[in-house]
Amino acid sequence: MHKNQTFKLKRKPKIIGSYTIVGPKEGKGNFGPYFDYVMKNDYFGEKTFEKAERKMIESAVTGVIQNAKLQTKDIDMMIAGDLLNQIISSSYAARAFKFPFLGVYGACSTMAESYAVASVLVDGGYFENVVCCTGSHFSTAERQYRFPLELGNQRPPTSQWTVTGAGASVISLNGDGPCITSVTFGKVVDFGVNDVNNMGAAMAPAARDTLLAHFLNTKTSPNDYDLIITGDLGKLGSEILIDLMEEEGVTLGVNYGDCGQMYYKREQKTLCGASGAGCCATAFNSYIIKKIKEGQYKKVLFLPTGALLSSISTQQGDTIPCVCHAIVIEKE
């Protein structure tokens, strides 16, 4: 374990606002009633899916600033990322705003990465209000990583469904909301999986690595948390994580869950569940944040994982390196 992997945030930055926007399929999923805005179709009034993804991120940032009862001029920094090459959705969305922008990429773990960076920056006193935003779009991800939408092929049983949606938060020292008390930055882990249709299996070892480091560095165990939630390991990946942790003598019990596994309903036929940067971003900023505010969860460990591959590395036969960042959110 690296000694500087986990940071305790002394001033406890708060999540003072959160906002989610999702596509119609996501709106019909299990978290449906908790989203702030459900789009009528995947185009969101734009000509292409890429432009729609960009507009989703723009709307999420605008929405979250309103939700935090702030104005655009109060924002000191925007940290955002997405799945498209050169994170164009985030950068192009940032063009619409007049604040400094940091683009981050951690594949599906991007939300936690932006939280981690933002909360450290805010805790250090360098910035006052930082917007974090992450999104993904099913149709843009499919064409970048997989096949055209209308191609009549079958999806393997381990595959997952990229979420169309964007989630955003404002991190600040002033205001009310759940606070981020510690963060663990993950290392890149590769257990030699090269099946792009089995991201859960590729990412589970990264979650194991970060979980073990986090428990060791914070001297906590699974029982100290009301909810331990991974991002998009999916049905198979989360079962693998439970097995991997069991081998290390750590039991993940009923307080463990996975956003990807919980996201869609069974009849929506997404096989192993949801995935994508928007998956944990929208699940966290809707359902989980609301449940923390209501007091159902007092201490939550949020650790989305990301598979850091590209279609080029896959075609060259490389295995899939993965990363997982963890943050602890507590009711204030």
Binding site: T158, F191, G192, A201, P205
Partner: peptide, 15 residues
Amino acid sequence: RNEAYNKYVSAKIPK
């Protein structure tokens, strides 16, 4: 480790 893990994963994959 990777070989063992891949073996474990392929046994666990839904068919």
